[in-house]
Design a protein around this nucleic acid. Structure first.
Lengths: 187, 187, 187, 187
DNA sequence: GATGAATGAGGGTTCATTCAT
DNA sequence: AATGAATGAACCCTCATTCAT
């Protein structure tokens, strides 16, 4: 039941936004009563927090798989990382959009929790950049923190415009990004 | 008075979000009555729309200045464009954040209006990329639309993390981004 | 100006009702400012009262012309009275409808004032009935007060359905009513 | 609860009018909270509509009982019809007054609905008149539609002045009206 | 586990009215 | 004589939450 509620609410949060979605909307969409909702969640806030933690924990878990794979070059790790996020749009685009849009509606404390995990994810990417600099794959004259922010910005924004069923496939999209990032645009 | 209301509300929308900011909050913050608000704006929606149109029109106007400057290379144009957005954070970071976060709260019709202008801005950047490809500044084997989305994602996301009073200055930030984009990360 | 305001407001009260017509609506409709309204009327209430008193006084004045005409039979007086009201629909149907519908929105005190004049009008009709009974024109076995209420109900209700530009002319309408009232429906 | 709300609001609408009665007034009068009101009605409008439809449907149902009674003469049917309305004042005078006064506050669509049923009621009365003309009970030289409007005006207006606990009983009132209508006033 | 009636605080909005100019 | 900015009370309505069953 918890899962049905989460599923239904992610749908609605994606479509109408957190604050415009009422508990009534949610329970109607899955055919249960308001009482049921409050049997499984203490508040609307808590539901949102659960959605966020679910999502980000999953992302972090997947990240770990590649982080520790020593057969991959750092460029390849970046590529995997990008693919991880972008391919996620198809499976969990709604969650991802909700995650990216509705953080602000979390309570102070939960925001911190989510930010900490986000930071962790980002620091892992930054570690890849720094490893690449160390082993000569990447140039050393650009600040690794800024570079990381740049890369993640580029990749994360895809949620707001990318259609996984459009003419550009996920692999191609990631390839273009990584190629541009590593070898540059210059002719 | 219109301006005082806009100013005060941008502050609050930035701090607490559109839906959590009440008209009462807004008028309290500038010391007038609720009636006054409705003397100048027909609805909360209309206020949000005005904020959006103000902001984006200004951005588009500034973009035009560089677009038509034939003394600039395309790399330089990209650089100007990035600086335009990022330096805007200091002056109008609040508006910018509100703009980027609260679009969803606009009514259908206004969303379309804003999207149209946004698209215009993006297409101008794409035109720079394409001009660069044509004159040999940029490589021709990467889709210009995707490249454009990537660059804008990278630059626009700065609103959510960049502190213009931190240790990295606006110029430096843009330099890193453009250098990475044009010459690539590879060592 | 007073008259322009009254005219415009009668229009609107007729169309939308008293409580759904705002002062703003009124002043907009005649192209002046709100301040002007309050220069000429102390309140919305006062405006309504003026409309009512204007209307009813006029009716009462016209009634007097026939009341004191000794060349008319009592049936003829009833006929004149009916024609007075019904022909008024064309000239001042709006006022009449406003008068009949919006009395309840007057303040206690003004309601009494209007009721007094209304009663006066009704008593005059009753006097005609009684005079007719006395001189044998009318039968004496029906309570004159009830008969009066009946006649006035019949005539006054025309405001809610009668179209003076329809196929039945005012004269014909009054003729049917009076003929039915005096000689009855029986075959 | 629905019924308690309707009862309480009919009381208030009768006393103060629809637009001067707030939801707060209604819920205060029956000792529940505002939320409760909106649990049972979607809007103030909807409440008014329900009151109207309840009332008029009931009237129409009762009318049908007499319409199809072939043992009654047409004069007797008219009498029954009048008694139906006038005796209703005691039981449901408030509803009746609300019904007669507040139609204008219904939304376009509901007004049409109510008008249709009203028309149905009126047409039934007209059918009685026409049947009476056909079988010789009533004279044939007066338009049956106008006659019907006249009779209904006479009877319906009683709501605004008739006190069922006054010196004239319902039966007597109806007798006077019908006698006057059928045999006329003439001496 | 699940229901749904009931709550009450708060939100956006309207509007008659005032008053300095 | 006329303006229009400013007020503040009141209004309709929404909604997260509680609780007896």
């Amino acid at each position: 039941m918890q899962d049905r509620i989460i599923e239904g609410s992610v749908d609605l949060f994606d479509k109408k936004g957190f604050s415009k979605t009422s508990i009534q909307d949610i329970v109607d969409s899955i055919g249960v009563s308001k009482g049921t909702f409050y049997y499984y969640f203490n508040s609307k806030q808590e539901l949102l927090r659960d959605i966020h933690l679910n999502y980000i924990q999953n992302l972090l878990d997947n990240q770990m798989i590649y982080m520790n794979d020593s057969t991959l070059s750092n460029r390849e790790k970046l590529q995997k990382m990008g693919y991880l996020i972008i391919s996620g749009i198809r499976k969990s685009g709604k969650s991802a959009r909700v995650f990216n849009r509705e953080v602000r509606h979390l309570e102070e404390e939960h925001i911190k929790q989510v930010h900490a995990i986000r930071r962790e994810f980002r620091m892992n990417v930054q570690r890849i950049i720094e490893a690449g600099i160390k082993n000569g794959e990447f140039r050393s004259d650009l600040r690794s923190d800024i570079v990381t922010f740049g890369i993640l910005g580029m990749v994360n924004r895809t949620y707001s415009w990318y259609d996984p069923d459009g003419e550009v496939k996920e692999e191609e999209l990631v390839d273009i990004f990584i190629e541009m990032l590593v070898n540059g645009l210059k002719g």
